[in-house]
Design a protein around this nucleic acid. Structure first.
Lengths: 368, 368
DNA sequence: GTGAAAGCGCTAACAC
DNA sequence: GTGTTAGCGCTTTCAC
């Protein structure tokens, strides 16, 4: 805002170059400055309230000193999506501690064209963190074509070169399912996530693997195409209730917390209770899970850590540091709450009788 | 990333200056370019994939083309705070539509010193949006001292020059209280927000005004110093339960949804029910209110709109447009849900008998 | 209508 | 150790 390095230099009776090297701590600079002069310059700078112009510096050093964080769309931040929030916290924390500034972008199309090319992938930032829940992103292609440094988050890729942070979706699906199996459930349904989101498939695979490992069949009606929304849980439940009582599941692994809560609420409205009528597991372990009624068992992803990991990896790339693991898969865990925690009564028995007895339970609960 | 305006100029057989004016649409530029040349330049630019270097441009034009959004601390983004989220959505949406980039900062102290001075208030951005829930901010002082353009959000100020977006906290407190009064409640408590947050006082004043207008007394035990956290609601309830039954309130206006839900959960644990034992009103109308058990009546602030308004005002200031209203107060509303919606039984009666009958209700509910 | 020249504020190379 | 010089990529007078 007015006061430049030349003003400082003049005040300290040195050249601009001397001031520059003195102030920017330059280690490898060829222009050396005596400790005493350095002190004088620093004093004057503080005195004058000098603050370097970041863009001028960027222009000269060819480094922006800023990172970009790209979300798929603006509404990604809407209240209902704690995931984006968590990623942002992680990224911001790490960026700050590494003295990098953070710019926020969305890859939302404007007039049908992604503004990405010129706006995002530019020397405005040194690198990008791309949150890409669905495959096929023009931003990413652009980055790769231009060899612009970037790290993706929740992006399924086949490119071994790509730097990508993921959570262990397969394991998450498996964990949820194994938990239900351990409680004695045999008929377990899965309300699957949207097909356009890449994490849906591995979670489903985890579910199927757990079932297979336990020697349990997965009949087609147990796989319900749902989604990540409230309403998907409601519809999913209705789909399950259309089945003849004997064929209904006793437990459900939902696409995420929102979906699970949608289901729980509909259950509530119909006089059904978890875990007695259906045991329910969610995904994400947001505080939606904590506050649900009953509190919801849910798979937890280390969201904030994912943001931090992405940022660290990006910065390492920018520094040219070696990257040990280009596509780390962060561990998930299961938080058990009341929506599943009762041992399913008929655990030791097998097959049909169990279903019937569950039906009895249901009627006895309903009037409660 | 390599390709400069000179490359474009050379390719089109013109000077860099011509290319510059042609490409940046320059209206008032003295360097005119014929429509035909202009087209040729534009074509070449596209062909070469030219994208102007934003920092070089900023340096020359002295405008950064970016806005800064400052939150008080990193954890402001934690899952539990949909407010920051909402503000961000609003700001981001508006910034994008105005072709401004957005940088994210926190005013968190690092090593006890705010990094603000040099980092945030700098030509890196053209102006700042400061979310300042508590009075006294060094960033803000800094901005004012340097006449750096900024707009505050949720900041109580006495400076008529300050641009500041607020919600009508007074009206919010009043609305909540009037609603409870209309339902027949006479003993209404207020779990007050933290004293360090500037919105607490006007909300309390709204509560007191509504009570006074209805001719209802506010006895000291009805004003409980709580806060914006879960635990504050729990503690608040316990404080109220310490009162002799006859002196307890029949309704509570809580500092915010989190506080209200903390209270509701504790009530639940103690076998108490809303609205029968205590009618409860929250604040913010987050989806915490929607999902609460029972769903929570809450005062809604137009959070996203506040973010948008702040951004619009900042941009107007930067453009030098006249600003009609420097400190707009955005309207709030009340979303009524089950935590209050029953008419209080003893509405027509008065005073003590009512309290007694509530006590009876309580015991009948407890064993349910 | 177009080009040459100067400069935004900073850093990096090189000479002394 | 320190100063001089030459850009980083762009815009903007001003002369032609």
């Amino acid at each position: 805002m007015g006061i430049t390095i030349r003003d400082v230099a003049r005040a300290a009776g040195v050249s601009a170059a001397a001031a520059s090297t003195a102030l920017s701590g330059a280690k490898g600079a060829s222009t050396r400055v005596s400790p005493e002069t350095r002190r004088r310059i620093a004093d004057k700078a503080r005195e004058l309230g000098y603050v370097p112009h970041p863009h001028a510096r960027s222009l000269a050093t060819r480094r922006a000193g800023a990172l970009g964080l790209v979300f798929p769309y603006v509404q990604a931040f809407a209240d209902q999506n704690p995931f984006c929030n968590g990623i942002m916290v992680g990224v911001l924390e790490e960026a700050i501690s590494e003295h990098q500034n953070l710019m926020l972008f969305t890859a939302a199309a404007e007039d049908g064209e992604t503004p990405v090319d010129g706006v995002i992938v530019s020397p405005r930032v040194d690198g990008l963190i791309l949150v890409l829940p669905r495959p096929g992103s023009s931003v990413l292609e652009h980055c790769k074509a231009k060899r612009f440094p970037c790290v993706t988050v929740v992006h399924q890729t086949e490119d071994p070169e790509e730097c990508s942070i993921n959570a262990d979706d397969f394991r998450g699906g498996r964990l949820a399912t194994e938990h239900l199996i351990a409680l004695g459930h045999r008929r377990i349904a899965h309300l699957m996530g949207s097909q356009h989101i890449s994490s849906s498939a591995p979670r489903r695979l985890g579910y199927e693997t757990a079932m297979a490992d336990a020697g349990l069949p997965v009949e087609p009606p147990m796989l319900v195409q749902a989604g990540f929304d409230w309403a998907d849980g409601t519809r999913g439940l209705e789909r399950l209730l259309e089945l003849p009582p004997k064929e209904r599941p006793t437990a459900v692994f939902a696409a995420n917390d929102l979906c699970a809560v949608g289901m729980l609420r509909r259950m509530h409205a119909l006089g059904l209770r978890a875990p007695d009528d259906f045991a329910v597991v969610g995904y994400d372990d947001t505080w939606l899970a904590e506050t649900a009624n009953p509190p919801l068992t849910s798979v937890r992803m280390p969201i904030r850590e994912m943001g931090m990991a992405a940022t660290r990896m990006l910065i390492a790339r920018l520094k040219g540091d070696p990257i040990s693991e280009r596509q780390p898969v962060l561990p998930v865990s299961l938080t058990v709450r009341k929506s599943t925690n009762a041992i399913h009564r008929d655990a030791p028995r097998s097959g049909d009788p169990q279903v019937a007895s569950v039906e009895e339970d249901r009627s006895s609960q309903r009037d409660h």
